[in-house]
Design a protein around this nucleic acid. Structure first.
Lengths: 132, 132
DNA sequence: CAATGAACACTATGTTCATTC
DNA sequence: GAATGAACATAGTGTTCATTG
């Protein structure tokens, strides 16, 4: 997971989504992809951010490959009424560990970026500079 | 410049550098590329961010293409002593207008992103959630 | 038609190479 | 050798197409 420590400019969207997904999957079992997607889109709407379905699924796939989450097929809605298949996610033991690590790294990363953005505001919108 | 309003995830590095460069060029005439670069790298060091020379030059080129800045060749150091050629930048009238517009847009964008990052901290590192 | 996923495409950005004084 | 720039390469992510129940 060291690829998320990469002190660059801003955080990667993937790492950001991973943070949310790991924590959401931990909190509430039985969540599935398009549900996470619409929830997050709703949460972020007022911040002008709307993750795409592909990026969200790719994040879930990566978590699966990492062994952090496991997948189970389910049928959505009443049996016999609705046959929509979904894939629900739950945290593995390894995922629990990864979550703790990722949370820790991302906290630092988020704070670093907030610091950088705040600096930009201070530097460029600060008090009027004295002339001469 | 409407391409920087694109309500996505995080701000684009290019737009971020443009903010700094426009304001730096306005403040202090006679600045040149590699000087801006090392200054910015120093300023951002404690934030773990180190822009590359190419990205910085590309930003300057874009500002030039936009007619926001104009370029003049100069010789660095004492004449007859050092023949290093540099390119100094200064703001055009149009650049002054563009600076005001860009500043305005970027303020909103920076604040939006700070909000988003702070939300992520609240959401994922907030008070322990009650069980049941 | 909703959910999932893959294939493809593009943009932003970094790495490497080149040029000039 | 420092400053500038171009060429090339890659990563991250979005758009479109496909599949399945």
């Amino acid at each position: 997971m060291s690829k998320y420590e990469n002190r660059g400019f801003m955080p990667k969207q993937r790492a950001f989504l991973k943070l949310y997904l790991l924590n959401k999957i931990k909190e509430k079992k039985g969540g599935y992809g398009s549900q996470f997607l619409t929830d997050l889109q709703k949460e972020f709407k007022q911040y002008g951010y709307s993750p795409t379905h592909t990026e969200l699924y790719k994040t879930l796939h990566e978590l699966t490959r990492d062994g952090a989450v496991k997948r189970e097929k389910r049928l959505l809605g009443e049996p016999g009424v609705n046959f929509q298949e979904i894939i629900v996610y739950s945290l593995t033991d390894e995922g629990q560990e990864q979550l703790e690590i990722h949370n820790k790294l991302m906290k630092v990363e988020l704070e670093r970026c907030i610091g950088l953005l705040n600096k930009a505001i201070r530097d460029n919108y600060g008090p009027i500079k004295k002339k001469a």
